[in-house]
Computed example of a mutant assay.
Amino acid sequence: MKAILLVIAIFFGIPIFACKCDTPTIKGSFESADFVFVGDVYDVNKTYFTAYWNVENVLSKVRVGKIYKSLSSDFKSKDVTFFGQQFNSCDFLFNKKDEYLIFAYIDPDTTFFYSELCLATKPLNQVSDEEFKLLEKLSKDYETQLSNSENTNPELSLVLRTPDKIINDLKRENRQVSDDNQTLKTYLIIVSLFFLVIIIFVILIRKKK
């Protein structure tokens, strides 16, 4: 009975849904994200979906402050809505009212914004002076690039941006699946060895009798 409980505990402890990615950097997050800005989360609404688990969904209203990057130069929105799901392990949930440096994507179907744990989104008071300086430089470089792209083709930046995002998402998902499979294999080996030891132990006891 104890062996069965141990096996159950081991399997339920496997972090299958953990988000796997490299430590996010300001530069990498800036290049990956569709939008980068300072945002004030002023309203948070949480809902829960109960199936086998209680899954937290968060709708957060964000007041847009300084903009460092957007898909087009005519982005003037003062308020945007972020949606995050606990079940999607990589979603960054804005479940606390505060000011943040936000790296974000936009869902074209819902027009909701979302951020990820694989981006360098964090409370504004955790952003260093060096990181602010880097953001200013990256922003100026991006504005120059965006201006040149829009002069050639107004939709060029968006067209070129979309495949990059899809590829990055697929790479992260593949890396997560690979890591999860490796973890699962390790646990299976441990469990198999455990049962093998138990079987050998039982056989030895019976022989002594």
Rank of each mutant, 00 (worst) to 15 (best):
G39T: 02
F17E: 07
N45F: 14
P15H: 01
T25F: 07
F35G: 04
F49S: 14
V44A: 09
G39C: 09
I16G: 00
E31V: 05
S29F: 13
W53Q: 14
F17W: 03
D40E: 14
D43M: 12
Y42D: 11
V41E: 02
A33P: 01
F30M: 03
T25S: 13
D43P: 03
T23C: 02
V44E: 10
K20T: 12
C19L: 00
S32F: 11
C19H: 02
C21N: 08
K20H: 09
K27N: 10
N45R: 15
Y52E: 11
K20G: 00
A51V: 15
D22T: 11
I16K: 05
V41D: 03
K20D: 04
W53M: 13
W53T: 15
A33M: 06
D34Q: 13
F17S: 07
G28R: 03
T50K: 08
Y42L: 06
V38Q: 06
D40Q: 11
V36K: 01
T23N: 07
V36C: 05
A33F: 04
C21H: 13
I16D: 00
N54E: 10
E31D: 13
K46H: 09
D34P: 03
K27H: 06
F37D: 02
F30V: 05
E31Q: 12
Y52D: 12
A33W: 04
F30R: 01
A51G: 13
Y42C: 06
P24Q: 03
S29N: 02
G39Q: 07
P15Q: 01
I16Y: 04
E31G: 06
P15V: 00
K20Q: 08
W53F: 12
K46W: 10
A33G: 05
F35H: 11
I16N: 00
G39L: 10
N45S: 12
F17N: 11
S32I: 12
Y48H: 09
E31C: 05
A18E: 09
T23M: 06
V41I: 11
G28Q: 03
V36Q: 02
F49Q: 13
P15K: 01
I16W: 02
I26M: 08
D43C: 08
N54R: 15
T50P: 00
N54D: 12
S29V: 13
I26S: 04
S32H: 06
T50I: 15
T25E: 09
K20Y: 13
D34Y: 11
N54G: 11
V41P: 01
A18Q: 07
T47P: 03
D22C: 02
G28M: 05
G28V: 07
D22N: 09
A51P: 05
V38L: 08
T23Y: 11
D34M: 13
K46P: 04
Y48S: 04
D43G: 06
N54Y: 12
G39H: 05
F35P: 03
A33C: 08
S32W: 06
I26H: 07
V41T: 03
A51K: 14
F35M: 04
Y42V: 11
I16T: 00
Y52T: 14
Y52M: 14
P24H: 06
F17H: 06
G28H: 03
I16A: 00
V41S: 01
V41L: 06
N45L: 14
V44I: 10
W53C: 13
D22V: 08
T50S: 10
E31I: 07
Y42S: 11
T50Y: 15
K27M: 08
